[in-house]
Design a protein around this nucleic acid. Structure first.
Length: 651
DNA sequence: ATATGAATTGTTTTT
DNA sequence: CAATTCATAT
């Protein structure tokens, strides 16, 4: 029944695996070769299993560099490797780990010439891609009324979906964007031009990272072999949230050894909007012959009542791997569904319960408030501040996308990638008397010089522009050979500060952000790695980065979108805006697949809780978007057994 | 060509 | 309600 893939006796290992793991976990940890699919329910110790497997492989004398651990965030892989190192020894720290995107970045920088792209390509984040698309739209269809073409945000969504779902733009428009179908030629033309300009300006967007990596592996057998040899043992976490390209990358990477373990939970697939498909995990065994399937079903996190409710929520899902979570924690409190009169009552309810739990000795760090969308917590945040409760917020607002941060980074990006047109435009447009036309002209002459950033010195403005002189001064200072990354940050900030002050009324607040960014730079010795990290793994919370150590020491409440709460757990969890039309989002209402994803999202939310679980919804909320009055609780919480959910009214 | 002020519009989730 | 687009003055 329990195969022993290793010949060494248990006693030969430093770690007492059999004593520390249940039998399914142990199987996942000790199986060494071949394709393995681990179906790991919420809270079933999948992180634990992966961590121990890393340690086990290393203990079996596998060179750590040949182990590749692909995770959803870099933080997740770092945490696992840290834990593995604590279990065994520091060798585990040299295991290769990161996200698909960061892995692709690494490989592409090395092999870019095979693909005909520059090794110093700049990575476009979402906002950059939108800016570029917008420029193209203006060039190709000048004077076109707003309503004639989709907005830039929509255009980028279309391009990205097409790639991630492996559809042509034409097909995608017929299936998902019928209302834009009559503009298919224009949309296609913009897409083609977008592709062309990315090539021309050495830009690579998020999707390109994956597509290029795929092409590299597909078209160049020698690289496939070399990378396949370099990475002998591959593990992928959160496999339910990977898309078709990522699955193909995995296939190619392990074509020669088949040592691939993927771990995931189809019931927690919540990134469909990004092209993730739980088909991936469902069809893994078909794709890899002889796949061993291991199910982790014992839940170590939640009490039985919380699990009963969660099981009931997911039971109504249309499609899933059959599994049933169980726990030994028989006793516990029944989850509560509270209807509040208004949003402020909802906040009052949360505050009230937090005070109560806190006074019973539960630290704030063991409590989280979760919600569907970032802005859902605004009212609560005001109340928390008023009551002097410290919190960290994850998800929603994107620090990296605020204008002042992008301004500062643009000044650094052109040092690493002097061709970066978008950054140059951004820098130049900040100066007085320089508009789009002048910026374009200056950009052209900088490029004509072919001497990188120094090209700026050759510019002789027709009009007197003190701004341009200051800019030249900045780059003269920055081109000193010995300057460190954080010194660069200081210089740019000193240069940018007057511009900041003249543009924004709230510049003191923004200055603090910038200072924080510069202090993050302290940790980097290379500008390039700083810049890649900032686009591939931007700080995820309002107080990420600098204050990591203090933040960990300080007792804070967590606010988070459900998406950003994936993989985490707390003793007490409050899910606010559990209102039909908010959660599920009104957006998903007319699409059955989208509703299914919302259901899984609710399942993810509820399974974060160990002991206390509360759902709250304000009654009678008028939604201007849909012109509807929302007054019912989330449909996922309706028609459940009465014994599983306590319904109350507040106040 | 650029700057400024008025009108309009569409609002998730994230690498 | 903030960000984007449009129209007008410099």
């Amino acid at each position: 029944m329990n195969p022993k893939p290793n010949c060494r006796p248990d006693s030969a290992y430093k770690i007492a695996y059999p004593a520390l793991l249940n039998s399914s976990q142990l199987e996942a940890v000790t199986v060494k070769e071949g394709p393995v699919l681990v179906i790991a329910g919420a809270g079933s110790g999948k992180t634990r299993a992966l961590t121990y497997r890393v340690a086990r492989l290393v203990e079996d004398s596998i060179p750590p560099q040949t182990i590749l651990l692909l995770t959803f965030t870099r933080k997740a892989s770092q945490e696992m490797l840290r834990r593995a190192a604590n279990l065994l020894d520091d060798r585990c720290r040299s295991v290769s780990g990161g996200t698909f995107h960061s892995f692709a970045n690494l490989v592409l920088r090395q092999f870019s010439h095979y693909l005909g792209i520059s090794p110093s390509f700049a990575i476009l984040d979402r906002a950059d891609a939108e800016t570029l698309v917008q420029m193209i739209r203006k060039d190709l269809y000048p004077g076109s009324a707003v309503s004639e073409l989709p907005r830039k945000n929509t255009l980028v969504n279309i391009f990205s979906s097409a790639i991630n779902k492996r559809l042509s733009i034409q097909d995608l428009l017929t299936t998902e964007y019928m209302h834009f179908h009559h503009q298919k030629d224009a949309i296609q033309a913009i897409s083609d031009e977008y592709t062309r300009r990315k090539k021309e300006d050495d830009f690579v967007d998020y999707d390109d990272l994956l597509v290029y990596l795929y092409q590299l592996l597909k078209q160049h057998a020698e690289i496939r072999k070399s990378l396949g040899t370099r990475y002998q043992y591959i593990m992928v976490d959160e496999y339910q949230d990977t898309n078709a390209i990522q699955a193909d990358i995995i296939s190619l990477l392990c074509r020669h050894h088949k040592n691939i373990m993927v771990v995931g939970d189809d019931a927690q697939s919540i990134y469909g909007f990004r092209g993730a498909s739980f088909e991936n995990i469902m069809r893994f065994p078909e794709r890899f012959d002889g796949t061993r399937i291991i199910k982790l079903e014992q839940n170590y996190r939640s009490s039985q009542p919380i699990l009963d409710l969660s099981n009931e929520i997911i039971d109504q899902a249309a499609e899933k791997y059959p599994k049933r979570l169980f726990t030994k924690r028989r006793n516990g409190l029944t989850p509560v569904l509270a209807s509040a009169g208004s949003e402020s009552h909802q906040s009052a309810y949360v505050l009230n319960r937090i005070h109560h739990l806190n006074s019973q000795g539960l630290p704030l760090s063991e409590i989280a408030v979760l919600f569907r969308a970032g802005f859902h917590s605004f009212d609560l945040e005001i109340e928390l501040a008023r009551n002097d409760i410290k919190y960290v917020k994850y998800g929603g607002f994107k620090f990296m996308e605020s204008a002042h941060i992008k301004d500062l980074l643009a000044h650094l990006k052109v040092i690493a990638a002097p061709k970066d047109r978008l950054s140059w435009y951004r820098i130049l447009l900040l100066l007085d008397h320089i508009g789009p036309k002048t910026a374009q002209a200056i950009y052209s002459s900088i490029q004509a010089g072919r001497i990188g950033v120094r090209g700026i010195h050759a510019i002789n403005p027709t009009k007197k522009s003190s701004g341009l002189d200051r800019l030249k001064g900045l780059y003269a200072a920055l081109s000193a050979e010995t300057i460190s990354v954080s010194e660069m940050g200081d210089r740019v900030l000193a240069y940018y500060h007057p511009i900041l002050a003249s543009r924004y009324d709230d510049h003191p607040k923004r200055l603090k952000d910038l200072e924080q960014l510069v202090s993050i730079m302290d940790r980097y010795s290379s500008l390039n790695s700083f810049l890649s990290d900032m686009t591939l793994e931007p700080p995820s919370s309002s107080s990420d980065g600098t204050m990591d150590i203090e933040a960990e020491a300080e007792d804070r409440l967590t606010l988070s979108t459900v998406h950003s709460a994936k993989g985490l757990e707390w003793k007490a969890v409050f899910i606010i805006w559990a209102l039909d039309g908010k959660f599920p989002s009104g957006f998903a209402m007319d699409d059955p697949d989208a509703i299914e994803e919302e259901r899984r999202l609710m399942y993810v939310a509820s399974t974060r809780a160990k002991d206390h679980l509360h759902f709250i919804y304000p009654e009678n909320v008028f939604d201007r978007q849909s012109q509807l009055l929302h007054s019912k609780p989330s449909r996922f919480l309706e028609n459940l057994s009465e014994s599983n959910l306590d319904c109350i009214s507040y106040p």
